[in-house]
């Protein structure tokens, strides 16, 4: 590593930054807690602020409309510790993930083909754009009418709803990739497989990660609607049960459990995935001096 730095200084990239740092003011430090702690602190702070606002509202409105935050949280705890929480959550998550997986498996190849071959683009553009405007609720109704109250209709409704969004994101991403790299891969006779895996897909990583995030959010919204239509398990079903007994506390508590699960997926799994697949990119430092 020392050698690398020496080489960089020799070619004048690091050299100026080093001398500037020592000649003018010392660089601003990240504060006594360090960067990571500050980041976590701000995230927790924003959640606490939300809970505080909720508490204020609960003082104004009757508890049947807005229950107290801590009463709702104790309801969350009782949901998680008693009953079949993991079965209900598991059923919903399975529907989200299977539907999402189906959409992904179709969208990635289709998006790449649309982005690289003109005639496929012309052919698939209208249905994809039309699909984007179709509300998830209508897909849910259509799929249940078609497949009945089966798991298949849940998977299909999720997949069909998020498929246009995923495809558009990957299609547009493919159109913006570096054409010089494609020429390079042609000059070295790369196989079609190698062009996709080594040259095109890595340039789509940011688009695919963004698509995963949007896609999961959208999938959860659709699956709850499907479950409300008469499924006998899942988070959507539990929310309907809360609604039927007019228990605002139960509705909110179930919504919160799902939010927590999604946050864990977002920050745990997707965040981890993002760090793995973007290791090659130096960190962007835009605003600090």
């Amino acid at each position: 590593m020392a050698k690398l730095e020496k080489a960089l200084v020799a070619e004048g990239e690091v050299g100026s930054a080093v001398s500037e740092g020592s000649a003018i003011a010392p660089r601003r430090k990240a504060g006594p807690w360090g960067e990571a702690t500050r980041h976590i602190g701000l995230s927790v702070g924003s959640i606490l602020a939300l809970i505080f606002a909720w508490w204020i509202l609960s003082l104004i409105f009757p508890p049947t409309l807005i229950p107290k935050p801590w009463e709702t949280f104790s309801e969350v705890i009782s949901i998680v510790t008693t009953g079949d929480f993991f079965l209900e959550m598991g059923a919903t998550l399975r529907r989200v993930l299977v539907g999402f997986g189906i959409a992904m498996v179709v969208s990635i190849p289709l998006g790449i083909i649309m982005g690289t071959l003109r005639s496929f683009e012309s052919f698939f553009e209208p249905p994809v754009i039309l699909g984007l405007t179709m509300p998830g609720l209508i897909w849910a109704v259509l799929m249940i009418m078609f497949f009945g109250l089966t798991e298949t209709s849940a998977y299909a409704a999720v997949a069909v709803t998020i498929f246009p969004m995923l495809t558009i994101s990957i299609w547009q991403g493919t159109k913006s990739i570096d054409k010089d790299l494609i020429d390079m891969s042609r000059a070295f006779h790369a196989s079609p497989w190698s062009k996709v895996v080594d040259v095109i897909l890595p340039q789509l990583v940011s688009h695919i990660l963004a698509a995963i995030r949007y896609g999961l959010g959208l999938a959860w919204k659709v699956v709850v609607v499907v479950e409300m239509f008469g499924f006998s398990n899942g988070v959507g079903y539990q929310v309907v049960r809360g609604f039927n007994t007019f228990s605002m506390k139960a509705v909110l508590a179930w919504a919160i459990t799902f939010l927590v699960v999604m946050i864990v997926i977002e920050f745990g799994f997707i965040g981890w995935l993002e760090r793995i697949v973007t290791r090659w990119r130096p960190k962007i430092v835009a605003w600090s001096r």
């Binding site: 020429d183 070295f188 196989s191 990583v205 090659w280």
Partner: peptide, 19 residues
């Protein structure tokens, strides 16, 4: 025109595989 997501040596083996 390097593949920035591949190590230096993998940029070379990319060409070797292609050829």
């Amino acid at each position: 025109r390097l593949l920035n997501w591949k190590h230096v040596e993998d940029n070379l083996t990319f060409a070797l595989r292609g050829m």
